[in-house]
C-alpha cells in the first residue's frame, strides 16, 4: 500500500464523512484495484449522495467492470445536478462513441471542450470522432478501451476489464502486440515487462519439454502487491494479466480466457 493510500485510508477511518474517499478511490483505480475502489466509492456515496465527482468516479469504475448502462445512469445523474460537469460529458461522449452514436459523442465532447478547452483527452477524443465523420462514417470504427482515451489503439482486448493498463499480448520475441500495463505508480511498463515475458515463455517451454509435461497452459505468480496470470492466447502469443491481490487466480483465468478469445479474433482480423 502506498503512503498516500495509507494516509487517505487513515483519514477516512478518522472521519467517515470526509470527501477524501474520492481521491482514495481515484488512487486505488489508478493502481488497478478496481474492486477496492468500488467499495470505497459505494460507501462514500452512502454518506455523500450529492457529490457529483463521486458519481463521476463511480461511473468510470462501472465502465471498468463493463457495466455501461450503470455508468450511463451515473453520468446522467451528474448532469442533472451539474449540466457542465466535465467528467460526465467526457464519459457520455465515450459511451456514445462506443455504441456508434458519433453525433451524440460530438455533442458531449464539444460541451466538454467548452468547460475545459485545454483538456488533452477531450481534444484527442474530438480529433478521433471528427476523423470518423470526415471519413464519412457515422458509426465508430473501433471500440475505445476506456473513456477519455478514444484516440488510443484499442487493440485486442476492447471491452475487457483493465484492458489498457493491466493486460498485455506479447509475441515470443517480447514485442507488444496489444494491451497496456502500468505499474502501481501508474507508469507504463509494457515494453519492459514484455521483454521479460519472452524469457519466461522460453523457460516454460523448456521446462515442460525436458520434464515431459506436455504443453504449458498457464503460469500464475502471486506476489506481495498483485497477481500475474500468463497463458498462451495462440501458439505463438503470450497473454499477461495483472491484477491486485483481491482478484484470485481462478477469476483471473476466467478473465484471461475471455481476453484470449478476443485476442484470437483480433489477430484473425489483422491478417489478410
Amino acid at each position: 500500500m502506498s503512503d498516500d493510500i495509507r494516509a487517505m485510508t487513515s483519514e477516512l477511518a478518522r472521519d467517515p464523512g470526509s470527501l477524501v474517499f474520492i481521491p482514495l478511490g481515484e488512487a486505488l483505480r489508478a493502481r488497478g484495484q478496481i474492486e477496492a475502489a468500488r467499495k470505497v466509492i459505494r460507501a462514500g456515496l452512502e454518506r455523500n449522495p450529492d457529490s457529483t465527482d463521486a458519481h463521476d468516479l463511480h461511473a468510470r469504475l462501472l465502465v471498468d467492470v463493463g457495466d455501461l448502462e450503470g455508468a450511463e445512469r451515473e453520468w446522467s445523474l451528474v448532469l442533472s445536478a451539474d449540466a457542465r460537469h466535465l467528467g460526465a460529458h467526457k464519459g457520455l461522449g465515450f459511451l456514445c462513441y462506443r455504441r456508434g452514436d458519433v453525433d451524440g459523442a460530438l455533442d458531449h465532447l464539444e460541451l466538454a471542450l467548452s468547460v475545459d478547452p485545454a483538456d488533452p483527452n477531450v481534444l484527442q477524443a474530438l480529433q478521433t470522432v471528427r476523423g470518423v465523420v470526415a471519413e464519412g462514417g457515422r458509426s465508430a470504427p473501433a471500440v475505445p478501451a476506456r473513456h477519455g482515451e478514444m484516440a488510443a489503439d484499442t487493440g485486442p482486448f476492447s471491452g475487457v476489464e483493465g484492458a489498457d493498463r493491466a493486460m498485455l499480448l506479447v509475441d515470443p520475441r517480447g514485442r507488444v502486440l496489444g494491451g497496456g500495463l502500468r505499474n502501481p505508480a501508474g507508469i507504463e511498463v509494457a515494453e519492459t515487462v514484455a521483454a521479460q515475458l519472452a524469457g519466461v515463455s522460453q523457460e516454460a517451454e523448456r521446462t515442460v519439454r525436458v520434464l515431459e509435461l506436455g504443453e504449458w497452459s498457464s503460469i500464475v505468480a502471486e506476489a506481495a502487491d498483485g497477481n500475474m496470470f500468463l497463458c498462451q492466447a495462440l501458439p505463438d502469443t503470450i497473454l499477461l494479466l495483472v491484477r491486485d491481490r483481491s482478484v484470485p487466480p481462478a477469476r483471473m483465468q476466467v478473465i484471461a480466457e475471455k481476453a484470449a478469445e478476443q485476442a484470437r479474433a483480433w489477430i484473425a482480423g489483422q491478417t489478410p
Partner: peptide, 27 residues
C-alpha cells in the same frame, strides 16, 4: 523459471512472488 518470473513481477511493480504455479497438460 522462478528467477525469470521474479524479474517480470519486479518489472510489473507487483513485488516479490511468494507462490508460483506452472500448469501443463500432463503435469
Amino acid at each position: 523459471l522462478a528467477r525469470r518470473m521474479r524479474r517480470t513481477a519486479d518489472a510489473a511493480g507487483i513485488g516479490f512472488p511468494h507462490f508460483l504455479h506452472l500448469q501443463a497438460t500432463t503435469g
